[in-house]
Write a protein that binds this DNA or RNA. Structure first.
Lengths: 153, 153
DNA sequence: TTGTTTTACTTGACTTTTGCAAGTTTTTAT
DNA sequence: ATAAAAACTTGCAAAAGTCAAGTAAAACAA
């Protein structure tokens, strides 16, 4: 665990990977469909889809976004009819978010494009390596959820 | 390979992970040191460090950044004395980039902070899982370099 | 050699995105 | 009932990104 070289290196690689997947994602958004969806907007769409009727706070926090920026993004997405807002019946302060059918469709298209890229990327790997990678991604994802590491401010 | 559910899911997880590592990285920049370094600036610094005397084009391309934005960022970083530029002796059009000692230090500090987070994150995993993850990260990184997948425009 | 094209960057003039401060409305706590 | 907190929204200023145009050096072609 005290192996400095090892950690330095891994940290670097992870950072670069994260950046590159970001670019990849952005490309998917650009090229997937007529709809112009920015990278952050795609994240918002994905996150709304992953949750069930989340509040704005909930989504904004999970994305590590400032609520004010988020508020404006939602306004945009709403005007493009990709997302709808409705008041929480139990608490009038809260807006619950949902994807419109178009929103779902956009999400699907981004996903498909991503899938193409991933297939290309994974074609570089052997069956065994592929499994390793998929397992790892899940492990990391779960670990991150547990530690809540990403969103501390 | 035709397992739709599998791929959909993996794509989602990777996207979310990439986002979260981005946030993580941004947090590292915010909290690591007195120096105020934005996320993009940290990526630039890291990328310059990873290469040996890269040109501006080289770094900008690898980060998927517009050269004009990049040019201005370098100007800023130069004025903060984190990066230096010098003319390529063989081709006067080209500016070669290098981190200053301060730049290296900033990079180190961001790295250390990242290391702390990673250790926390990895403490959720068993020794075996940790190895799996580290191996995967390298595999992905290499595969991405091969396909050049990230930066196609 | 000379003229044309390409490459590597810079600058100007925008538009978009973001973040802080301050405000509104509703809920919770005292 | 009053104060404090939570969930947003809006104003404003700074940061980042884009497009068009420009400079200077290198590569290429006649």
């Amino acid at each position: 665990m005290g192996d400095t070289f090892f950690w330095d290196d891994t940290g670097d690689i992870i950072r670069v990977l994260a950046r590159q997947f970001g670019i990849l994602n952005a490309n998917c958004c650009d090229t997937c469909c007529g709809e112009e969806v920015s990278l952050v907007q795609s994240h918002i769409i994905i996150e709304i889809d992953r949750r069930t009727n989340p509040s704005m706070q909930e989504v904004a926090r999970s994305l590590g976004m400032d609520i004010t920026t988020f508020s404006r993004q939602i306004k945009t997405l709403e005007s493009r009819r990709l997302v709808t807002r409705c008041q929480d019946p139990g608490d009038k302060r809260i807006n619950l978010l949902k994807l419109t059918p178009e929103g779902v469709q956009v999400k699907q298209q981004i996903n498909n494009r991503m899938k193409e890229y991933l297939e290309l990327l994974f074609s570089e790997l052997t069956e065994f390596e592929r499994d390793t990678v998929v397992r790892s991604v899940r492990l990391l994802s779960r670990a991150m959820e547990k530690t809540g590491i990403c969103c501390l401010r």
